[in-house]
């Protein structure tokens, strides 16, 4: 068995001229031990009638439909609608369902934690890689990395600095380790200079990383 890598660093430097943050699509054509296993297990489960090919395809499409834009819609609504925000903080699943999100696909309880001038929240799963997939899609590589999972609980301010985020000492840093059936989404603070923007314009300001809590939103330049 050869252990292949999907760690980003294992791919070496990106070709010149390419955005280092651009998606990687390499070694898609290598039939590794693990890829053979995926094909074999999937085909056997389909042959046995445990799964259908259509179910697998639709589930992949469902995952593809979940992107950070979903979380951003929820955040923007919370910024403009105090009643929605109150529901979001009390029962995030119900609040998201009221916006049309299908929350039943995943058997977990969404919990929203709010950043304030006094408290900055940041989320990790030290024991595996639990992530609010229903609103953000698949977790990024760094969230699943050994380094993030190991270090965030021990020295969160240093980890945040690696993301370019400096939290003032007057602000408490609150780490959330999602060890059970809760999934955490951070409600970032509405950025300065965003008065008068429409809800879709506000949603466009909200980044994936701000909803995990590793960044804060920059003031709007106008």
């Amino acid at each position: 068995m050869h252990i292949g890598h999907d760690h980003p660093h294992a791919h070496g430097e990106p070709p010149a001229g390419l955005d280092p943050h651009a998606p990687q699509r390499d070694h898609d054509d290598t039939l590794t031990y693990f890829r053979k296993l995926e094909i074999a297990v999937r085909e056997l489960l389909i042959e046995k009638g445990v799964l259908t090919a259509d179910e697998v395809r639709r589930t992949v499409e469902n995952y593809d439909s979940r992107t950070p834009e979903g979380g951003a819609r929820v955040v923007a609504r919370a910024w403009v609608d105090p009643a929605f925000k109150a529901l979001l903080m009390r029962d995030a699943t119900a609040a998201c369902e009221s916006l049309g999100f299908d929350m039943n696909v995943f058997d977990v309880t969404l919990t929203v934690v709010e950043n304030t001038p006094d408290t900055h929240n940041v989320v990790v799963c030290t024991l595996c890689s639990c992530y609010p997939r229903m609103l953000l899609g698949m977790p990024p590589a760094w969230y699943k990395s050994r380094a993030y999972r190991s270090r965030l609980v021990r020295d969160p301010r240093a980890v945040l600095r690696e993301f370019g985020t400096v939290i003032d000492d007057a602000v408490a840093v609150r780490v959330h380790d999602s060890t059970a059936d809760l999934r955490y989404l951070v409600l970032p603070m509405r950025p300065a200079g965003s008065d008068g923007l429409s809800e879709p314009e506000l949603a466009a300001l909200v980044t994936r990383d701000s909803m995990v809590g590793v960044t804060v939103l920059s003031p709007v330049q106008r």
Partner: peptide, 29 residues
């Protein structure tokens, strides 16, 4: 029953580098 339990960072790590009001919430049975 599952609880969210809040720990002071300095309770967890004697040499914690951040501030005294930093915390970790962990979901525990």
């Amino acid at each position: 029953m599952l609880y969210r339990v809040r720990f002071a960072q300095r309770e967890l790590w004697a040499d914690y580098a951040g501030t005294a009001h930093d915390t970790i919430d962990v979901d525990l049975y």
